[in-house]
C-alpha cells in the first residue's frame, strides 16, 4: 500500500517535475534556489526508489516495532523482531534494492575514477605547462584563443589563456576571475559530478536525464551573480560576450544559453520576492521530507498504539 504510494510519488518527481522546472522562468532569477530544488528532487527520488522495494522486504510495522524498541520509556522489553520469511514480494523487493544499489554504486565508481584520473593529469599539466601569474593568482596557458576555466578539487585554481589576458580589459578580467572563483567557492563541480553520476545510473529517467544540462546552466548563472558582487553587471555581461566571440579557426556552437546569460545580466530583473522564495523553500522541504514521512508516519502511529 505504502509502496504503491511511494511509486506514484516517485513517478511524479522523476517524470512530472523536470519539464515544468526546466521551463520555469523564475529559475534564472533565483538560480541557487533552483539548484536546491533540483538537488532536493534528486535526493527525494533516489530515497524513494530505495525505500519502495525495501518496504516489500521489511514491512512498515517492523520499522514501527524497531522504533518502539529504540524508545526506552515505552518499557516493552520482551519484544522480538520478526524473523523474515522469504516470500515472492520480499524476493522482488530485495532484488529491487540490490539492483538500485548496484547501479548507483557502479555509476559512482565509473564517474569518479575517470574524473580523478583526468583531474590529476590536468593538475600536473597546468602546473608544468602553464605559468603562474602571482598578481592575479591564476595560471596562464599560452594559447591564443581567449578562454577561462577552473580546475576544481585539491589545489583548485583558475586558468586563463594568454588570449584571454590579451583580449579582456582589466575590469572584465576581474569579472571572469570572480566568476570562476564563485564556482570554486560554491563547490559547483560537486553538484555537476553528482548530476553526472545520477545520469549515468538512471539515464533514461527524465529527472536524471535533464538534470546535468539544467544544473550546468544554473551554476553558470549563480557564478555570474557571484561576479556581480565584485563588478558591475554590464562588465560581467561584456566579459561573457567577449569570451563567447566565435574563434577564427573553428566553428562556434549555437547557444541560446549564452544569449540568455548576457541579456539576463543587462536587464536587471527584480529578485524573487519573499513569499515566492518561501513557497519554493517549502516545496524543497516537502521533497526532502516526503519519503521519510511515508515510512515513519505508520511506524509512529504504531508507536503510539503500543505505548498508549
Amino acid at each position: 500500500m505504502i509502496s504503491t504510494g511511494l511509486i506514484a510519488y516517485a513517478l511524479l518527481v522523476t517524470v512530472g517535475l523536470p519539464r515544468p522546472l526546466s521551463a520555469a522562468s523564475w529559475t534564472s532569477r533565483a538560480p541557487r534556489l533552483a539548484i536546491s530544488m533540483w538537488l532536493a528532487a534528486a535526493a527525494s527520488a533516489v530515497a524513494t526508489v530505495i525505500l519502495a522495494p525495501l518496504l516489500l522486504v521489511v514491512p512498515v510495522h517492523a520499522l514501527g516495532d524497531l522504533l518502539v524498541l529504540l524508545v526506552q520509556w515505552c518499557d516493552w522489553a520482551d519484544h522480538q523482531l520478526p524473523v523474515p520469511t522469504w516470500t515472492v514480494p520480499q524476493a522482488v523487493g530485495a532484488a529491487g534494492v540490490l539492483g538500485v544499489a548496484l547501479r548507483l554504486g557502479y555509476a559512482i565508481v565509473a564517474v569518479t575514477v575517470l574524473q580523478r584520473r583526468v583531474r590529476r593529469r590536468h593538475r600536473r599539466e597546468i602546473r608544468l605547462v602553464g605559468r603562474f601569474h602571482p598578481a592575479l593568482d591564476v595560471f596562464v596557458l599560452d594559447h591564443p584563443q581567449p578562454s577561462a576555466f577552473c580546475l576544481p578539487g585539491r589545489d583548485a585554481t583558475v586558468v586563463l589563456t594568454a588570449g584571454a589576458l590579451h583580449a579582456l580589459p582589466p575590469g572584465e578580467l576581474h569579472a571572469v576571475i570572480a566568476h570562476e572563483r564563485t564556482h570554486l567557492r560554491g563547490r559547483h563541480h560537486l553538484i555537476l559530478t553528482g548530476a553526472a553520476i545520477l545520469d549515468r545510473a538512471f539515464g533514461p529517467v527524465p529527472l536524471f536525464e535533464d538534470m546535468p544540462g539544467e544544473l550546468r546552466r544554473l551554476v553558470e548563472l549563480a557564478a555570474d551573480d557571484g561576479a556581480t558582487r565584485h563588478c558591475p553587471r554590464h562588465t560581467v555581461a561584456h566579459a561573457v560576450l567577449r569570451l563567447a566571440a566565435p574563434p577564427v579557426s573553428a566553428l562556434g556552437m549555437g547557444s541560446t544559453a549564452v544569449r540568455q546569460r548576457v541579456l539576463r545580466l543587462l536587464t536587471a530583473r527584480e529578485p524573487l520576492g519573499g513569499p515566492a522564495v518561501a513557497a519554493r523553500a517549502l516545496l524543497i522541504a516537502a521533497l526532502l521530507l516526503t519519503p521519510l514521512a511515508a515510512v515513519t508516519m505508520p511506524a509512529l502511529s504504531d508507536l503510539g498504539y503500543h505505548c498508549l
Partner: peptide, 19 residues
Amino acid sequence: GLALLHFVETMNPAEYETL
C-alpha cells in the same frame, strides 16, 4: 562529468553578431 567549469562556450558568428 569532468566539470572543468569552462567560463563560456564560443558562439557561432551569426548568433554572436545578433547578441
